[in-house]
Design a protein around this nucleic acid. Structure first.
Lengths: 168, 168
DNA sequence: TTGCTCCTCACGTCACGTGAGGTGGC
DNA sequence: TTGCTCCTCACGTCACGTGAGGTGGC
């Protein structure tokens, strides 16, 4: 049980995933294999790999974040001398990580989900059980109610501040 | 700039503040002096002070949290030998801290706000400028949108999981 | 003596941010 | 030589959680 306050949400992630896209499913008991949408970036530019700075810019994250994900075993780009070289599979993996982060999963949970996909074709999907999915929905609903609550009270205070209805 | 994900919100805080209560204002340029509502706990029980365990139980926080707030200069209970003794002013201060936390302020911001109330009567109010107030509203609105977004997508996934509309 | 609460260090967690000090290619 | 990006430690931040080892009163 951890009591981290809600603050400074991941602004960046929302830029990546257009909300109109439908996830690709391969139904298999009650597990989803959530795929990253890599179609738009598949073979457009440099096919031999991106530098850490290029990938970071593409996804609006810091290079520090990419190194951190690597240290947690979530990414493992090729090396060209000392430099990291990110290929299309790394890009797809990163898209998955950020999508899962947007859904409120921790990096540890995300690691378990990507580790569980070993052996699948392309290996760029994320294992999400129905149970985990509804747990996450419950969690987000609780968060939503609390943020809404705080907003109602803060707005009431702000209104009173803006239009002092004489109290003294 | 810090990138903490939204997760594990402060469930406890919402138990303390009934949403029907109107904040007490003392208008003074564009600053609110937000007061803690201590009327209900004013002189009901033991008047000489509570132990850390008793105060923690009353507010549904851990003793560790109370010691942590003290280490950050937010609380400074009296001592009886080695033991902390919390009086009514400490209780009111804690109510303020938890209220501000609910609004999404960091402990550092809360410290600045309580420090700014030095010299006020009773010293149990919290200085909140109109500007800070609307900044906080903006922040919470961004959070709200992101949690709503994530919820929409996760619910779509869950629906598809629950009713497999034949895709194979 | 057991059980309960209290105490003070002090390290762990989470997802990175932020220098510190140095290399490589234009 | 300056400017840019890259690298590896390694410590800092935020709000606590979690033992480690010990005390005090019933």
């Amino acid at each position: 049980m951890c009591g981290h306050a809600i603050r400074h949400p991941p602004f960046t992630a929302s830029l990546i995933m257009p909300s109109c896209e439908q996830p690709t499913f391969l139904l298999n008991s009650d597990v989803v294999w959530l795929d990253a949408d890599t179609a738009n970036t598949a073979a457009s530019d440099a096919p031999s790999g991106l530098s850490i700075g290029e990938l970071a810019a593409e996804f609006s994250v810091t290079t520090r974040a990419l190194r951190f994900y690597e240290s947690r075993g979530l990414l493992s780009p090729a090396r060209s001398g000392g430099m990291r070289l990110y290929g299309n599979s790394d890009r797809a993996r990163l898209a998955l990580i950020l999508k899962a982060k947007k859904y409120g999963f921790t990096l540890l949970e995300i690691k378990e989900m990507v580790d569980a996909q070993d052996g699948r074709a392309e290996a760029q999907s994320l294992k999400l059980s129905r149970e985990k999915c509804s747990e996450q929905i419950d969690m987000l609903e609780r968060q939503l109610r609390e943020v809404e609550d705080a907003l109602v009270e803060l707005r009431r205070i702000h209104t009173t501040l803006a239009h002092p209805t004489a109290e003294r």
